[in-house]
Amino acid sequence: GATAVSEWTEYKTADGKTLYYNNRTLESTWEKPQELK
Protein backbone atom coordinates (compact mmCIF):
# COMPACT_ATOMS: atom_id res chain seq x y z
CA GLY A 1 0.00 0.00 0.00
CA ALA A 2 0.97 3.62 -0.37
CA THR A 3 2.65 5.29 2.56
CA ALA A 4 0.83 8.28 3.98
CA VAL A 5 2.93 11.29 3.16
CA SER A 6 2.87 14.07 5.72
CA GLU A 7 0.73 17.00 4.66
CA TRP A 8 2.87 19.30 6.75
CA THR A 9 5.55 21.59 5.35
CA GLU A 10 8.11 23.07 7.72
CA TYR A 11 9.18 26.68 7.31
CA LYS A 12 11.95 28.49 9.16
CA THR A 13 11.11 32.12 9.83
CA ALA A 14 13.63 34.96 9.87
CA ASP A 15 13.75 34.95 13.68
CA GLY A 16 14.58 31.26 13.79
CA LYS A 17 11.16 29.89 14.70
CA THR A 18 9.61 26.98 12.87
CA LEU A 19 6.19 27.29 11.29
CA TYR A 20 4.27 24.21 10.19
CA TYR A 21 1.85 24.52 7.29
CA ASN A 22 -0.71 21.90 6.30
CA ASN A 23 -1.14 21.63 2.55
CA ARG A 24 -4.49 19.85 2.81
CA THR A 25 -6.32 21.92 5.43
CA LEU A 26 -4.39 25.15 4.71
CA GLU A 27 -3.83 25.39 8.44
CA SER A 28 -0.62 26.78 9.91
CA THR A 29 0.66 26.25 13.42
CA TRP A 30 3.68 26.99 15.60
CA GLU A 31 3.17 23.73 17.50
CA LYS A 32 4.67 20.58 16.06
CA PRO A 33 1.76 18.59 14.58
CA GLN A 34 0.90 15.13 15.97
CA GLU A 35 1.77 13.52 12.63
CA LEU A 36 5.37 14.71 12.92
CA LYS A 37 5.97 13.46 16.46
Results as ranks from 00 to 15, higher is better:
Gly16Pro: 00
Glu10Trp: 13
Arg24Asp: 11
Thr3Ala: 14
Gln34Asp: 15
Lys12Asp: 04
Lys12Val: 12
Ser6Pro: 11
Trp30Ile: 07
Leu26Lys: 15
Asn23Gln: 08
Thr9Glu: 11
Thr25Gln: 01
Thr18Tyr: 07
Lys32Ala: 05
Lys17Glu: 06
Glu10Thr: 10
Lys12Arg: 11
Lys12Tyr: 10
Trp30Asp: 09
Thr25Val: 02
Tyr21Asn: 02
Thr9Ile: 14
Lys32Phe: 04
Thr25Pro: 02
Thr18Asp: 03
Asp15Phe: 04
Lys12Leu: 11
Tyr11Ala: 03
Gln34Trp: 10
Leu36Trp: 09
Ala4Asp: 12
Tyr20Arg: 00
Glu31Ile: 12
Tyr11Pro: 00
Tyr20Ile: 00
Leu26Tyr: 13
Val5Trp: 14
Thr18Gly: 01
Gly16Tyr: 01
Lys37Glu: 14
Lys37Tyr: 14
Ala4Leu: 13
Val5Gln: 13
Thr13Pro: 00
Trp30Val: 08
Thr9Trp: 07
Asp15Gly: 09
Leu19Asn: 03
Gly16Ala: 01
Thr29Val: 10
Glu31Cys: 05
Glu7Gly: 05
Ala4Thr: 13
Glu7Ile: 07
Asn23Pro: 06
Leu26Asp: 13
Trp8Ala: 00
Ala14Met: 09
Gln34Pro: 14
Glu35Asp: 10
Asn23Arg: 06
Leu36Thr: 06
Val5Ser: 13
Thr25Trp: 02
Val5His: 12
Tyr21Asp: 03
Ala4Pro: 13
Glu35Pro: 07
Trp8Glu: 01
Leu26Met: 15
Glu10His: 04
Asn23Tyr: 08
Ser6Gln: 11
Tyr11Gln: 07
Tyr20Thr: 00
Tyr11Ile: 15
Thr9His: 08
Gly1Ser: 12
Glu10Ala: 11
Glu27Pro: 00
Leu36Met: 09
Asn22Gly: 00
Glu27Met: 08
Thr25Ala: 01
Thr18Arg: 03
Gly16Ile: 00
Glu27Lys: 06
Thr3Asn: 12
Glu27Gln: 09
Leu26Ile: 01
Gly16Trp: 00
Ala4Tyr: 10
Thr18Met: 05
Glu7Thr: 05
Gln34Gly: 10
Tyr20Asn: 01
Asn22Ile: 00
Lys37Trp: 14
Trp8Ile: 02
Thr18Ser: 07
Trp8Asn: 00
Thr3Arg: 01
Lys12Ala: 08
Thr25His: 02
Ala2Met: 14
Ser28Trp: 15
Glu10Arg: 03
Trp30Gly: 05
Trp30Glu: 12
Leu19Met: 13
Lys17Gln: 10
Glu27His: 04
Leu36Ile: 09
Thr25Glu: 02
Ala4Ser: 14
Lys17Tyr: 08
Ser6Thr: 10
Thr25Met: 00
Glu35Val: 10
Thr9Leu: 08
Glu10Tyr: 07
Tyr20Ser: 01
Tyr11Glu: 04
Thr25Gly: 02
Asn22Ser: 02
Thr13Val: 05
Leu19Val: 11
Lys12Ile: 14
Lys32Asp: 04
Thr18Val: 12
Ser6Asn: 11
Thr29Trp: 04
Ser6Gly: 11
Pro33Glu: 02
Tyr20Met: 01
Glu31Thr: 10
Leu19Ala: 09
Ser6Trp: 10
Asn23Phe: 07
Thr9Pro: 00
Thr13Ala: 08
Arg24Pro: 04
Ala14Trp: 08
Glu10Cys: 13
Asn22Ala: 00
Gly1Ala: 14
Asp15Ala: 06
Arg24His: 15
Gly1Trp: 12
Trp30Met: 10
Gly16Ser: 01
Glu7Lys: 02
Glu27Asp: 04
Leu26Phe: 15
Asp15Asn: 09
Lys17Ala: 06
Glu31Pro: 02
Glu10Ser: 09
Ser28Glu: 10
Gln34His: 11
Glu10Val: 11
Lys32Arg: 11
Leu19Trp: 15
Tyr21Lys: 04
Glu10Asn: 02
Tyr21Cys: 09
Lys12Cys: 06
Leu36Gly: 06
Glu31Leu: 08
Ala14Gln: 10
Tyr11Gly: 03
Lys17Val: 07
Glu31Ala: 06
Ser6Met: 09
Ala2His: 13
Gly1Asn: 13
Ala4Lys: 06
Thr9Gly: 04
Lys17Arg: 15
Leu26Ala: 12
Glu7Gln: 06
Thr29Asp: 02
Thr25Leu: 03
Thr13Gln: 09
Gly16Asn: 03
Ser6Glu: 09
Thr29Gln: 10
Glu27Ala: 05
Val5Pro: 14
Gly16Gln: 02
Lys17Leu: 09
Lys32Glu: 07
Ser28Leu: 15
Leu19Ile: 14
Tyr21His: 08
Trp8Val: 01
Thr3Ile: 12
Asn23Gly: 04
Ala4Ile: 13
Lys12Asn: 09
Glu35Lys: 04
Glu31Asn: 07
Arg24Glu: 14
Thr3Gly: 13
Glu10Gly: 03
Ser28Ile: 15
Tyr21Trp: 10
Pro33Phe: 02
Gly1Lys: 05
Leu26Ser: 13
Glu27Arg: 03
Lys37Gly: 14
Asp15Pro: 01
Asp15His: 06
Gly1Val: 12
Gln34Asn: 13
Lys12Thr: 14
Glu10Pro: 04
Ala2Pro: 12
Asn22Trp: 00
Lys37Leu: 15
Thr13Asn: 08
Val5Met: 13
